[in-house]
Design a protein around this nucleic acid. Structure first.
Lengths: 191, 191
DNA sequence: CCGATATTTGACCTCTGGTTCAAGAAAAAG
DNA sequence: CTTTTTCTTGAACCAGAGGTCAAATATCGG
């Protein structure tokens, strides 16, 4: 009963995510978020409680979508090195091809709120750990298939790659595509 | 003639740098900056013109101090690998040991203003290029000394390391020391 | 000592941010 | 219908941001 919602909550979160992604947490005003979602400021607060809670929803959505993409991409055909290299290129190319360089929401959040917002920091950490596990699993499969040297420590290499990913996404906001692509090749060289 | 300055401009910039470093550009208010510098808001605007200009001065100071530290540290005794590993540990340990995790001003700036503030982006890029050159030179010396394999491309490896540094400083805001140290070891493995 | 010049300061101003709220609008229950 | 409940909205609120200004203060050349 009661008046039914006139907007899709998930769609609103998705729009908010875009705004947060592009302008950062502090840089996104309720007015912008509401307008992007196509609703009034009041509705936004009624539905989500606060800017911070809405951001939490946006981060969670980003995490789910990212994990799905990662999983799908890594499971494609080819050696571990080929797949991971392609995955890294996908990430940075998405950035270079986008109308505005916005990097990675998780990395941006780690830098903007890391240490100051425990919940956000924990969310980012969980998200990264998930990706790390996916990478490690892919490397492990590569070892079994024989295309990755047995001497490689899959877990360690995966953790290292995630650090590199963070670096790449910072670099993608400052440098040109060639430089970043070269860094990717160097990063996956040990595989 | 005229009333003499009652504060050291460079010292004020240094204090402002600390605030920007800790709270970000948008997160630092003129009131905080003035208080940190121990002067009134009016004096601050009189001396620096605008928040943005003050930030420029702070970035420049950070760059100079960083370059000096890098140079000094890399020229220490030992192999290239040892020195670079120690340097990377120095950076992340400084972060872990600090009362508040603030990462690297240049990296933070790249993410907060990258793409939106051309001047800031250029300043960061210059700063990174300088460090890259120092690293490349150190690797080159290692090759001459015979402690770095001749197969290593010094310039390429240096660029890659700078990407890694960015990643490390993001990681230092989200993960624990052991994880980051392990990533450093993996990063310098090729040397 | 007197202007001339330069600096300092806190009050003040405008604008926006994040949030709340009172009033209206749309459904379902009775 | 009316009541009840839930949603919607723009106005209104308060705090703080970023910046300006007039007045007060300090030094120097004459």
């Amino acid at each position: 009963m009661g008046r039914p919602k006139q907007f899709d909550e998930e769609a609103a979160v998705a729009q908010a995510m875009e705004v947060f992604w592009t302008k950062g947490y502090a840089g996104s005003s309720p007015a912008e978020l509401a307008e992007a979602a196509g609703i009034g400021k009041g509705s936004l607060y009624h539905a989500f409680g606060s800017k911070r809670e809405l951001f939490g929803r946006a981060l969670s959505l980003y995490d789910r979508a990212g994990a799905e993409l990662t999983e799908e991409f890594l499971s494609g055909p080819g050696t571990a090195k080929e797949r991971i290299r392609a995955y890294l290129r996908l990430l940075v190319d998405a950035d270079f091809d986008a109308p505005v360089r916005r990097g990675c929401l998780a990395v941006n959040t780690a830098l903007e709120l890391g240490g100051r917002d425990a919940e956000a920091t924990a969310a980012v950490r969980r998200s990264v750990e998930r990706s790390t596990d996916l990478l490690a699993a892919r490397i492990e499969r590569g070892k079994l298939a024989g295309d990755v040297p047995a001497s490689v420590d899959a877990a360690e290499q995966a953790r290292f790659l995630m650090v590199t990913v963070a670096g790449l996404r910072v670099a993608a906001r400052t440098f040109d595509r060639e430089t970043v692509h070269a860094a990717i090749d160097t990063a996956v060289a040990p595989l």
